[in-house]
Design a protein around this nucleic acid. Sequence first.
DNA 1: CAGTGGTCTAGACCACTGG
DNA 2: CAGTGGTCTAGACCACTGC
Lengths: 267, 267
Amino acid sequence: MPALSDPRTDLKPPLSGASVASSAGATAAFSPLYQQIKGLILNSLRAGEWKPGESIPSETDLAVRYRVSQGTVRKAIDELAAENLLLRRQGKGTFVATHAEQQVQFRFLRLVPDSGTRGSEGPAQRNIIECRRTRANADVNRALALRSGDQVLQARRVLSFGGTPVILEDIWLPAAPFKGLTAERLANYQGPMYALFETEFNVRMVRAQESIRAVAASAAQATLLTTAVGTPLLSVERVAYTYHDEPMELRRGYYRTDTHHYQNDVS
Amino acid sequence: MPALSDPRTDLKPPLSGASVASSAGATAAFSPLYQQIKGLILNSLRAGEWKPGESIPSETDLAVRYRVSQGTVRKAIDELAAENLLLRRQGKGTFVATHAEQQVQFRFLRLVPDSGTRGSEGPAQRNIIECRRTRANADVNRALALRSGDQVLQARRVLSFGGTPVILEDIWLPAAPFKGLTAERLANYQGPMYALFETEFNVRMVRAQESIRAVAASAAQATLLTTAVGTPLLSVERVAYTYHDEPMELRRGYYRTDTHHYQNDVS
DNA sequence: CAGTGGTCTAGACCACTGG
DNA sequence: CAGTGGTCTAGACCACTGC
């Protein structure tokens, strides 16, 4: 191993909070080396240096690159794998997670059929009702951290399983990162919408937060979901985030739960 | 460190699948040392050797006890901490997680007020409607992995926040592990029900699986929740598990979502 | 100050994959 | 067979807690 006298261009040594201000709180947080490495890897992911589905360099290579031991790189990758940003495959390498894989399709969709398993009803049919460009209202602006006046894309679609419409969704996206997205491209793409976002716009959804309520179907909703007005529906409001917790999508879903249910593990 | 010649009473060496049957698949799975250690710690937890809220021995002590390095014990504890079974506190020790802590009260309850934070409405009022001992139907038996004919305890209660009834719950428990549980003890206990289970019956709920639907309030439900018949309610069916994935509780909850919502993080 | 968990390193060896 | 991630060890040192 090389001596540590060599200056590191990327990393600060993990020094403790020796900030100027000594009194009155405001102590600089101690940041371990592996957290700094994690941040650097995160930056490379966001910058697209390694694309979804591709492998990242081996642990030993990264250890050389960052001038730390393999164990430290390993711990950084461990956390990123636990957050589903990376995928380790023994003997093969470490890969950037993607929404395009067959195994984890609909990874963010918690709705499953009451009987049978996910996907047992065959592929979902996607039906784009509309897609337009507007200025968002205050609600949407707040959720997406936009300035008032910023443009957004709004889409509405229906997902059907086995021929039955089950999900009605309104989707809002900031217009800037999704420049060029049209109803046609949405309609023609086969596969999860988030996979299209990855390949076409270099936007990878990493985590999401959902707020769930029970509501009664309006006339419009009932029509699109071929059910009666007043039918109880699951209202699922989702904000999806990219790397570094940037909000990138607001989605308001209405789920029929007569043949499906929302499944959640809590611990 | 002592030589490894010393026979280990508890552990098999992490040998690979050299089982008798060599052909026809059925290869014995390779189990790393730290997984075996994790299993032993799990056994001690289930046996009540260390009780909720107490500290377990230090990593170095456990390393001596199990005759492995501290790093191996550490990895076992890491996983148990990630699963919320243990709680690490730097400088103090490692503690058995509990539902009785102030910080994590209602850890399994995902319902939060639309405005304000969890607990901002003051403490929840718990109202036991009934508690009786019966034979369970097939549904409940299946969920709790009981034999038909086994006795169960059934309770119904209403939870109110800020004076408004928000949650109606039906709860089923296997009678055997909860021998002696009565409506009075439930009603008199202040604090989360799962905390009572820990202290009185040595049953610790570790994880749960919830199935969520939207339903219309029945007459009985509407009365107890002081709302109108047909009001959309969130139906939350929960199966809660103890150590080693033993199902120990079935709970059917009905949540009003006019002032609260079910919050979920997905990644 | 001693004791705890947390970080970092270095090296040996194992399990798995694919050419 | 070489290359990858996975396990295990041993030791040094750091950060945090409480006496």
